[in-house]
Design a protein around this nucleic acid. Sequence first.
DNA 1: CCGCCTGGTTTCTGTTGGTGACCAAGTCAG
DNA 2: CTGACTTGGTCACCAACAGAAACCAGGCGG
Lengths: 146, 146
Amino acid sequence: MQDDTLISPGHLEGTRNGRGNVYARGCSTRQLLDRIGDKWSVLILLLLGDGEMRFSELKRRIDGVSQKMLTQTLRSLERDGLVDREAVPTVPVTVTYRITPLAGELLAALRLMMEWAETRMSAVAAAQAKFDEQRAAVDQTYPIGQ
Amino acid sequence: MQDDTLISPGHLEGTRNGRGNVYARGCSTRQLLDRIGDKWSVLILLLLGDGEMRFSELKRRIDGVSQKMLTQTLRSLERDGLVDREAVPTVPVTVTYRITPLAGELLAALRLMMEWAETRMSAVAAAQAKFDEQRAAVDQTYPIGQ
DNA sequence: CCGCCTGGTTTCTGTTGGTGACCAAGTCAG
DNA sequence: CTGACTTGGTCACCAACAGAAACCAGGCGG
């Protein structure tokens, strides 16, 4: 597995990582993606990054999550030490979630992503429209019905 | 990766931004996550971030991708203007992929995530082990066979 | 003509996510 | 006491999707 693609800057120590083999099944980046790379985790972390929140509020604010998936995702994040769950046996039980310091550090990266999305998604949309348009033109030139 | 163009009819947001409602269905952060929030996109962008690469090399280096998913994900990234595809009709056709400047900016955030993963995933693993251990203890105390 | 190379697409099947019904525990109205 | 309603969560079921493997295009070498 040689690397003819000029990796240039910094070949990191050992085989550890980055830019070297992000892809190996056991690699930390892969592990992270396996955990928070689902449909809801990032959204939850981003929301909790602004302050603790109750289960029902999370459900209300994240447009489209099902109760099942919210529970499941929160449980998974809790297991990974990224969110903290506190259940108070009040009248109807009250469960509060908040991010842990560990997740707090990750939050910086997630927010950077969010900022990119906010400033660049329009460009993505434009690229998409252009792509689809070209594909449509090709389809017209070479119709599918063989 | 669906192909609906959810640029949406403009409107409904007075919401623009972050910290406010990351959750609304049409929000840019949601759109971004819908696109690159899958199992392979981030990995591909990270790899291509180090330099252009051929299809077969990507497949070889990303441990576990199926040909179908690689093609599908690359096509989606191309559609979104994040990667550039160049097919040269050489002997056996040669297809090269590289990231676009647009994706280049996103790369900073992704690399930050990767770095977090590399330094913190061990803590996550520890948290996980602890959680599972406690759950096991509880299961022993209150066996399932009601 | 056979077999092989790259880059795909198709088919089939197992896993995943979403929907909606249901549960626990407690409170309050009637 | 009964029934309705709260919050947080589980379960059964079904549709959508990812993965494995087979197949395809077409150009070449033997």
